[in-house]
Computed example of a mutant assay.
Amino acid sequence: MNRADPRLALVAGEASGDLLASLLLGGLRQRWPQLRAQGIGGPKMIAQGFESWWPQDKLAVFGYVDALRHYREIAGIRRELGDRLLQDKPEVLIGVDAPDFNLGLEERLKAAGVPTVHFVSPSIWAWRGGRIEKIRRSADHVLCLFPFEPQIYERAGIAATYVGHPIADHIPLEVPRAAARAQLGLSDNDTVIALLPGSRRSEIRYIAPSLLAAAMLLARQRPELKFVLPVAPGLRALLDPLIAEHAPGLALQLLDGQSHGALAACDLTLIASGTATLEAALFKRPMVIAYRLHALSWQIMKRLAYQPWVGLPNILLRDFAVPELIQNAATPQAIAAAALEWLDDPVRCEQLARRFTELHHLLRQNTAQRATDAIAQVLGR
């Protein structure tokens, strides 16, 4: 292969990793237009010319119990993927998030002489800090989304670069509210609530019922409210019976994906903890974060946590800027009550939007360019 056209391996799990990796691929292709990128990815990566050898949703698990249930299949995919990459070594392996899958793969390829980059620092500052030793064995370089992370790696002698968050580059500083509403058939005067129960099947099972039931409570109190729910690919069949059970008759507009359109259009979002909460913050939207998972997984996570916040906006602001209703606290009644507090306090919403705007500027760093520069250094190009 021509030295100007590297062959890279990328592995991204679930929808958030697909988005991050697709934005990274855009930057990589600006530098190397003819690069080949192979491994595991989703539809946004494939649209960039990525060659995915397994369906991305095979890696989309939620919590310890779900991971154990699918361990044999996931471990088999990782072994086969590693074998394939070792037979025809890429110039670099880039693991995108999904640390429980990617770090083991990276460790194996690094030991065989393949340079490795881990894109998205695991949340070692929030829980499971002991993973830093695993990261040391696995990654030649860590690309960090948040400004406080490189110091942690520097203290441990691991090369790391703050690259900002690519979603902060992708989401406009000025929210296109009117255009998003027009596209969804909503008027400027509508009060719109977006329901975002997650993009993984297990998240839908654990979190969607509470969000849907909360929406029903809100609709009974305020019939004028409009509700939209972006549905991740392949999850409509799972959602339909939950809607029939927990929100029968609710005037709910289901969207084919379009989570960013929903966030741009809404006045408030009821949302599962995860990357989507950061996206909601970058759209300057008030939110109620809900988080539920298998009871055993929750007990394990709770014991390992280092700080009081779960949602990314609160972690980054180091404050309970938005309410978090976790596990047994995530009842429909509590979610609906927290939603009404936002709807009835426009001054509080404006104050939050100003804080989120400051956060947006902090995270907007032309991530694709910064990450590409760091990867080029790893490649010695």
Rank of each mutant, 00 (worst) to 15 (best):
S52F: 06
A214I: 11
A214L: 01
L239I: 05
R348I: 11
R292P: 01
L343A: 07
L343G: 10
A337M: 07
A213S: 13
A280F: 03
E350S: 09
A276G: 03
R72P: 06
E106H: 05
A262F: 11
D345A: 12
I271M: 05
Y291K: 09
T277S: 10
I77C: 04
Y64S: 02
P115Q: 09
S138A: 15
P176S: 00
D18M: 07
F356D: 03
F148S: 00
A329R: 15
L379C: 04
S138Q: 06
L252S: 03
L186H: 12
A338E: 15
P313M: 01
R222A: 09
L255Y: 08
L8A: 09
L109K: 05
C266K: 06
D66G: 01
D83M: 05
A244H: 07
H170Q: 05
L379P: 00
W54C: 01
E73C: 07
A75N: 13
Y64N: 01
I158C: 01
V163S: 02
Q299K: 15
R137F: 07
A21K: 00
Y206N: 05
P99E: 13
L282H: 00
G113M: 02
L278S: 02
I207D: 06
L316F: 13
S199T: 07
G49R: 06
T357S: 08
G164P: 08
T116P: 04
A280H: 03
F227C: 05
F148Y: 13
G198T: 08
A47H: 07
I77V: 13
A290V: 14
A337S: 11
A264T: 09
G249Y: 10
Q151Y: 08
R348V: 14
C349E: 10
Q151W: 07
I158N: 00
Y153P: 09
P286S: 03
S52M: 05
E245M: 10
E80G: 08
P308H: 05
R29W: 05
I326D: 02
T372I: 04
A330D: 00
H294W: 06
R7C: 08
S22N: 02
E174K: 14
Q183N: 11
A334F: 08
I335Y: 10
D5M: 06
Q333L: 12
L195G: 09
D344C: 04
V114T: 15
A338I: 09
E154Y: 10
L238A: 13
V92G: 01
R354L: 14
A219E: 14
I375G: 05
V65Q: 14
Q351S: 03
V347P: 01
G26V: 04
L10M: 14
I135A: 06
G13I: 14
A156G: 02
P90F: 11
K44R: 15
G185S: 02
R36F: 06
R155N: 07
L359M: 15
I171N: 00
R364T: 14
A182P: 04
L145N: 02
F148M: 13
P33R: 09
Q34L: 13
L312N: 00
H360Y: 12
V65C: 01
R137P: 03
L218K: 11
Y162V: 04
A4P: 02
D188R: 13
A156N: 01
S259K: 12
A272C: 10
A160V: 11
A281D: 05
I74C: 04
A338N: 10
H260N: 12
R69Q: 12
H361G: 04
A12R: 03
F146E: 04
R31E: 09
G49D: 08
G76Q: 10
Y306F: 13
S52T: 07
D100W: 11
